[in-house]
Each structure stands twice: as C-alpha cells, then as structure tokens.
Write a protein that binds this DNA or RNA. Structure first.
Length: 265
DNA sequence: TCAGTTGTTTATAT
DNA sequence: AATATAAACAACTG
C-alpha cells in the first residue's frame, strides 16, 4: 500500500493512537527488519520510558518522534501499523511492537522491504534521510516544475525519483500521468515550461485529493486507479482499452488514446 | 509451477 | 555525469 497518501494515513493513525502515551518496552520479533546499527536491546533501551510526540512524514518515511530519539519507519511495499489495546492477536508479520502504558502499536511488514531505523538526534536523522528529497506535497507546483526542469529522460522516472521529489510511487505516478495526459515515456526535455507546470499542478491535486480522502485513491471511479491493472480495463475518460508497458522498471498502465506515445527515436 | 506485487539499493550498461 | 535496465531483497497471492 504505502505511497505518500498511505503513509500520511499511517502518520495520522500513529498520532491519534499514541498521543500522550509512554513507551513501556519494545518487542522485536524479527531483527531482520532493523536497519543501520540498531539492535533489539539498543532500541528497547533507547525508547523505554519515552513519551511519544507528534510524528512527522517526509515522502514515504514516517518519523515517529519521542521526547528522546526518533524512530524512522519505511513501509516498503506492504508494511503498515496496527494499534491494539492488548497483546492479543499479534500477527506473524508484526516485526516490531511498541508497548505503551495503554495499548501497543505494531509495525507490520510482510516482505521486509523498508524497515526501522533509530536516530538519537537530528544529525543522525539527517544522515538516514540524506538521499530523500523534499516532500512532494510540501512543495508549490512552481517548485516541483523547477525540479523537473533539471532533469532529462522519461517523465515517469523523474516523478518517482525520491531524491528529486519524495512520495510519488508507481500507482500514483500512473494516475498523475494519466490525468495530465502525458505518456509515461515522454521526455522531460520535450515539455514546455507550461507543460511542466501543468504536470506539477496535477501532481499536487492528485496527492491532495488522495490524502484528503484519507485512505488512498482507489475508490474514485473517474480515476485511472479505479480500473488500473484489471485485464481488459477501459480508460475511465474515453473507454479505450488501457495498455501495459514497463517504464522506470515498473509495470505501467496508460491510455493509448489520451496519452499518445512520444515520437519514435 | 509460475508470474506478479504499491519500494529501494546496487550493479551494470549506455 | 546522467540516465536506463535488471536483479536482489522476501513473502505472499492467484
């Protein structure tokens, strides 16, 4: 699930459920989810007795702050959070559990892409996030356009480059390009300034609406993601059968009528 | 059995 | 130097 809107949802979940709580202990059921030099003992010692504070988010990264260290979570392809009042019903993919004075937050992650980092101060936090660009939703469209303008090559590749702009994943990139009527393999250097600005505006509007709907973008019938990936699916705008290709190394769906291919090389 | 999966990193090639 | 591609990671679903 996790692209920017999903992680924002997780951030709000974390904030709501852990507000005012104190960490009693942490349970690491699978050390293979720990990143950097943190170990189960180090994590527990660092967090025991700490008060949970308002979490932040940059792109797909959740920064779970305490009155001491910050826990950094990345959810990979299928990670998530579950809050429970008691230790009952833990799932085998709950890799780390933050036990508080009134319930526990579980970091679930089936495939163990992503993981957990621990930063003892802002310097360590900056080190972990050194390659992460500005949050895609925190920038004005003109700023997004200016960043895109520094790049050449396939537009989808740039949208998904987390160092250029953080938060846009494969599904959202397809949605943005479909709404902007741009073929995923169009080249950035071919786009006009106005074209880039339009793309940046669509980017913000897709992210904003997905975040404000509070879950994801799949329910909206007028959007590509409502039908994306289904065999024989038709473009919600014009009814043309969607096509599948690979761009930026990822499965990509687009409408061949609304998103005309770039001129052959 | 095999292909496919919302992400990132690394290696390799162009 | 930038960009493009593929593989690897891990665990599951259909």
């Amino acid at each position: 699930m996790p692209e920017l809107p999903d992680v924002e949802h997780l951030r709000r979940t974390w904030a709501r459920d852990t507000a005012g709580r104190t960490i009693r202990r942490t349970v690491v059921t699978d050390p293979g989810i720990l990143r950097g030099d943190v170990t189960p003992d180090v994590l527990d010692a660092a967090l025991r007795g700490r008060r949970l504070e308002e979490p932040d988010r940059i792109g797909k990264w959740l920064l779970a702050r305490t009155d001491g260290p910050t826990v950094i979570l990345h959810f990979g392809m299928d990670g998530g959070l579950r809050w429970a009042e008691s230790p009952d019903g833990r799932h085998r993919h709950d890799r780390v559990i933050f036990v508080t004075d009134a319930g526990e937050m579980r970091f679930r992650n089936m495939r163990k892409l992503g993981g957990l980092w621990l930063a003892h101060d802002e310097g360590a936090l900056a080190t972990v996030l050194a390659q992460v660009g500005p949050d895609a939703l925190a920038l004005e469209p003109r700023e997004v356009a200016a960043r895109l303008r520094t790049r050449r090559g396939q537009v989808k590749s740039a949208l998904m480059d987390q160092a250029l702009l953080s938060g846009v994943g494969n599904l959202i990139a397809d949605e943005i390009l479909w709404q902007a009527r741009l073929h995923p393999k169009r080249r950035l250097e071919e786009l006009t300034d106005q074209g880039l600005l339009d793309l940046a505006r669509v980017t913000r509007s897709v992210l904003r609406e997905a975040v404000n709907r509070y879950d994801y973008l799949s329910r909206k019938r007028s959007w590509l993601n409502h039908v994306r990936g289904r065999p024989g699916a038709a473009c919600p705008r014009c009814g043309t059968p969607l096509e599948r290709t690979v761009a930026a190394g990822r499965t990509t769906w687009f409408c061949p009528a609304c998103q005309p291919a770039p001129p052959a090389a």
